[in-house]
């Protein structure tokens, strides 16, 4: 049955939208390095692209794909296939399509023009974000019949995770500035995959600034490999968790 997931995934990779997405990232990724002579600045620009564009495009494309392939999914469902292989094929196919686009568009120029640990962490972050937001998009799509509503909801999720969440965090920091809140902030951040992905990279590029923080917990977290390790672990959890709910819904719903 693993073959089936692979067939579905292979079929998905031929999707035009994924190709266009890869092209967009490639223009941004390769273009940035060609016009900017300082790779330290480029990597920060690419970080912004990864944090903003990747979640947005991935989740919108995944949502549209899911609704547009309703017939395809139905065609698969009437074959002697397990539902879990079908949804896994869709998830794996979409994720790997987005990840591949990201690796070609952003990852490759990073490795070629600026092969550093920071670049490596950015590539990891983008990869994780692609998978996570594919999962979140499917989570919304499988729980919602209406395509337009799903897109709206996915957009809200994107705005929340990329902008509003950090806004709330900053507001909380101002309100509680007199208390020792570092630990809570650190844990709060784990609730947002975009923040964790950002932190993973910033730990590499701006460690000097992060270590300026006085809290011992920060020093412990950012000063060692432990920080990267924990951040990656959280991203992995964020990658798996939405999919588990997607699967549960997909196995029990009617078509």
């Amino acid at each position: 049955m693993q073959n089936i997931s692979f067939s579905i995934a292979a079929d998905l990779l031929k999707n035009k939208a994924i190709f266009i997405y890869g092209l967009l990232l490639a223009v941004l990724g390769w273009g940035m390095f060609l016009i900017e002579s300082q790779p330290e600045k480029t990597i920060l620009a690419l970080l912004q692209i990864t944090l903003i564009v990747v979640p947005l495009m991935t989740s919108i494309f995944a949502t549209i794909y899911y609704y547009n392939s309703a017939e395809f999914i139905q065609l698969l469902l009437i074959q002697p296939l397990k539902r879990r292989s079908i949804i896994w094929g869709i998830f794996a196919g979409l994720s790997s399509g987005f990840v591949l686009s990201f690796l070609v568009g952003i990852g490759l120029p990073l490795l070629l023009f600026y092969p550093t640990t920071a670049s490596l962490h950015l590539i990891l972050s983008g990869t994780f974000l692609s998978v996570i937001f594919t999962g979140l998009a499917l989570l919304v799509s499988t729980h919602q019949q209406d395509k337009a509503r799903s897109i709206g909801f996915v957009l809200l999720l994107w705005i929340f995770f990329t902008f509003i969440f950090d806004g709330i965090l900053l507001w909380a920091m101002y309100q509680l500035a007199d208390y020792p809140i570092e630990q809570s902030i650190l844990f709060g951040t784990f609730l947002n995959p975009v923040s964790v992905a950002r932190t993973l990279v910033v730990m590499q590029t701006e460690a000097a600034a992060l270590l300026g923080l006085s809290g011992a917990i920060f020093k412990d977290f950012f000063g060692s490999l432990k920080g990267s390790f924990i951040a990656m672990l959280i991203l992995i959890i964020w990658g798996i968790l939405p999919y588990l709910f997607v699967k549960r819904k997909f196995l029990t719903r009617d078509f």
């Binding site: 035009k16 547009n68 392939s69 309703a70 017939e71 395809f72 139905q74 065609l75 009437i78």
Partner: peptide, 12 residues
């Protein structure tokens, strides 16, 4: 199975 109003993935 031959479904009602056969719908298929469009680009395929």
């Amino acid at each position: 199975y031959m479904p009602q109003l056969s719908k298929f993935p469009e680009q395929m």
